[in-house]
Design a protein around this nucleic acid. Structure first.
Lengths: 245, 245
DNA sequence: TAGCAAATATAACATATGTTAATAAATTGA
DNA sequence: TCAATTTATTAACATATGTTATATTTGCTA
């Protein structure tokens, strides 16, 4: 039996007790495979389950009636998907596998039980959801108030930060299995303009891009250009209730 | 003693038990006044408290080193402010009073206690925070994938929706105490361009703006233009734990 | 290995939005 | 009530980004 990557993730923020670990692991059963490109669910679907990403990564996207697409968020190993739709019955965005994936599903109801029996986990889930809000704030600021190059830099850096957190390694080469159109849909630009910007950034020796690989050649300059802040380091658990049992 | 507007808000989504009401109301003590324009806290401040808006409204903003400003979110009566900073010790954005306000503060710790003693409230807080994420998704999509006029329409409609939810009234005239610069900082445009767009929208009989008042003249057309979805209606509580006590 | 589809690259041109600056109008405070 | 400050309005011009179109390259699969 493989390790629960959800436990691994949560344990990064908090020393889970054995009982808590068990409760978390129980959410992560019956892993299923999804090939790259498949749709885990679709905007508007009636939703009663949550997902945990075991392997690979996914993205949530939303389409305007005009056909235009906005990529809202990326989901990596250990991420819980679907919480943002928990307030409603139907999904506010579609989830698409960006690579081959292994995913576990569990019912909303199970989350309710966890909230009852493990208040500290509830606090942790709440905190993680707030971290994600901050990530959204950062993206909002990037989309609203910076130009294309900075937006792209921001995207690359934030993907790198999250993948590095998962892998524990600090590599300037990151695998980003997204086309130029995808990148554009993530940062609000056209494919053509993304192409222009990548060329410029390559000429300026900021990055290199090759197939689905991006190399952060001059990371300090990228960070400055993007005004990037890595939010996903520590977590303040000082207000959490004490673990039960 | 005035009613707790936090109770009023939460009760809109869920029938609170008397015990739960008491617990919520206890978070809302010692109301303080803040004049319009004052700063409730500043980006980077060490943060140990949360706020509940009693009266008036506030906005969170973040500044780029260049001085550019992005308005991230608006806070109305019954809103809890500061949760998004709860994962960290320091505030990720500044909070500014957009009108004269009455605000209550309570320590993070109190939230921990609430999570322990009222799992159903924990689930509710979690859900509300997810609703806010969806609101952010909508704004992200608006900023990334629609043009100025649609962004403004979106802003007006979403403010209207939230104020109407608070007031219970459905009035086409809404008070928006924001300058054109503020509006620009909210939707990622310049003051000059906001001016242009408002003029156009007025000519097209979509809206009217006068001092700090915006009238939604042709709401159906605005909704279509903005592709607006009102997210703040119902809430799925089917997965919540049962109330305690 | 050829052939097809998808992704990338590039160009010419169109447009939304930004910049700067100057004036007018509205608010505010003494 | 008036002066002072903040907002709004408008114009001329600059620029980032979008649009459309066409090659070129890459990757896939038969």
């Amino acid at each position: 039996m493989s390790d629960s990557c959800f436990v691994v993730r949560l344990n990064r923020y908090l020393d889970l007790t054995p009982t808590e670990k068990k409760a978390v692991a129980s959410l992560e059963r019956e892993p299923r495979d999804y090939p790259s490109g498949s749709m885990l669910w679709q905007e508007g679907d009636d939703l009663s389950e949550l997902l945990i990403v075991h392997q690979g990564w996914a993205l949530s996207e939303s389409r305007l009636p005009t056909g235009k697409r906005q990529i809202l968020r990326f989901h990596f190993s250990g991420d819980m998907i679907g919480a943002s739709g928990i307030a409603f019955r139907d999904a506010p965005s579609s989830i698409v596998a960006a690579t081959d994936m292994v995913v576990c599903r569990f019912p909303r109801r199970a989350l309710g039980e966890t909230f009852t029996e493990h208040p500290r986990l509830a606090a942790l889930f709440f905190s993680i959801s707030q971290m994600e809000s901050i990530d959204l704030y950062d993206r909002l600021r990037a989309l609203g108030r910076s130009e294309g190059k900075a937006r792209l830099a921001n995207l690359f850096l934030s993907i790198a930060a999250r993948m590095r957190a998962v892998s524990g390694q600090h590599n300037p080469v990151i695998r980003i299995p997204l086309t130029q159109s995808d990148l554009g849909d993530a940062v609000g630009l056209t494919q053509v303009h993304v192409n222009r910007l990548i060329r410029q950034m390559t000429e300026e020796k900021l990055i290199t891009r090759n197939r689905s690989t991006v190399t952060l050649v001059d990371e300090p300059k990228l960070i400055e250009l993007a005004r990037f802040v890595d939010r996903f380091s520590a977590l303040d658990s000082s207000w959490f209730p004490s673990p039960r049992g």
